[in-house]
Design a protein around this nucleic acid. Sequence first.
DNA 1: TCTAGCGTTATTTTCGAAAATATGAAGGTT
DNA 2: AACCTTCATATTTTCGAAAATAACGCTAGA
Lengths: 232, 232
Amino acid sequence: MTLESLSPTGGRGTKADANGQRDVLTRLRSDIVSSVFEPETRLKFADMTKRYDVGIGTLREALSQLSSEGFVTVEAGKGFKVAPVSASELIEITDHFIAFEKRAVREAIAYGGEDWETNIVAVHHRLSLIEGLPWERRMERHSEWVERHREFHEAIVAACKGKWLFRLRSIMFDQLDRYRFVTKRAPDGLGGSKLEEHRDIMTATLARDADLASDLIERHIRDTSERAIKLL
Amino acid sequence: MTLESLSPTGGRGTKADANGQRDVLTRLRSDIVSSVFEPETRLKFADMTKRYDVGIGTLREALSQLSSEGFVTVEAGKGFKVAPVSASELIEITDHFIAFEKRAVREAIAYGGEDWETNIVAVHHRLSLIEGLPWERRMERHSEWVERHREFHEAIVAACKGKWLFRLRSIMFDQLDRYRFVTKRAPDGLGGSKLEEHRDIMTATLARDADLASDLIERHIRDTSERAIKLL
DNA sequence: TCTAGCGTTATTTTCGAAAATATGAAGGTT
DNA sequence: AACCTTCATATTTTCGAAAATAACGCTAGA
């Protein structure tokens, strides 16, 4: 393993800005996930170029990609809007994601090697550093948690053979992030501590217990989604 | 039904150019599907802007979206390349698509109304106009056939409730188009005439026979993919 | 012969001005 | 008042010049 995957910039194909700042695409997506812009909000170029300090063309490219990913909608000649959210969409996304992820983790367990295992332990550790924090301090670093959480689940299934399976589950995971955000205020007292759930998922996966891992993941995801539905 | 869906410009969110010419995104995708650019080919801005007669920014936006759709790959600072093809990827895409499409057609049959039915008949008719042509004349209009074929299969599942199910099946369908292209030369004497298969799919769907429709679609797709693998 | 450094060319990437389009307000007609 | 027309403003969309970066070839030194 090159260990470059251990750098905290994330496994996505993000191009970092010169001064180390994340690029527009990533920042914009992150802001939508974090409800900085409410659903249905128009994203005007004049405002956005100032906010993110980029040119019109660069911004348009980012928005265009986000529309492919389903985070924004675009109407020709009328610009871009933040995509709407709904309980029924959350249910559908959850079902698709779980179906993909269960298959992916089985493949990963079947084919994963030492690098895969090592990476899981590494990214889980970094995730647990945040999740072990007291509630208030964890909230301060919430956007960082989102990144680490994504990296952890990605690492679990990273060894899956199907490229498209991996790609599809990633699209769904990103969408789930949007809904996951609304559950951030709940100090997860009721219904499972994330910290333990993630540890159990890692343990089952490294033990190559596909049935258990697959089951734990389903419960982990479904639990969060069900809480999100109530708070929607 | 507004019947605007009957216009032959396609159901996709394409913005047509002033003089009726399709936009860059669509033309570029079509050219990649048609192997005008071989897999792994570098797509240089200098060449592309001349070929499609658009500015650099507009082209970049299109390429950027195509990378989201999986038709091109992008390496930061080194530009865009046509995504590679492989037999194993074809198998995976085929499996995903069939799984999606079978669920989608069941939903469509369950929820589809009169507009849905009418549209199926309409787009099937337009498809059959091309498929009924003698082989040579059909080849002349192959790119048109691709459009009609996409519209037909889209119409069949258009009434499906799951927005993401529809979206995901569309992504996979577009990818299959790439591989379908290599089978275009075979005058489909062996292994099923498309004309009849499409008629049967339509009949079963309109008869609301979900089991049969679902089965016919699977055979229809698998047959084409298997022929493609041999020609790859 | 190989490598490291440097300058030149080729290519990508960014940016904002200009063109095209949509939105909204004011005025005039039925 | 309701509806169309016209004009002014706001916003999106396109484009190509300029900046940033990568690729290549050349020379010098070991």
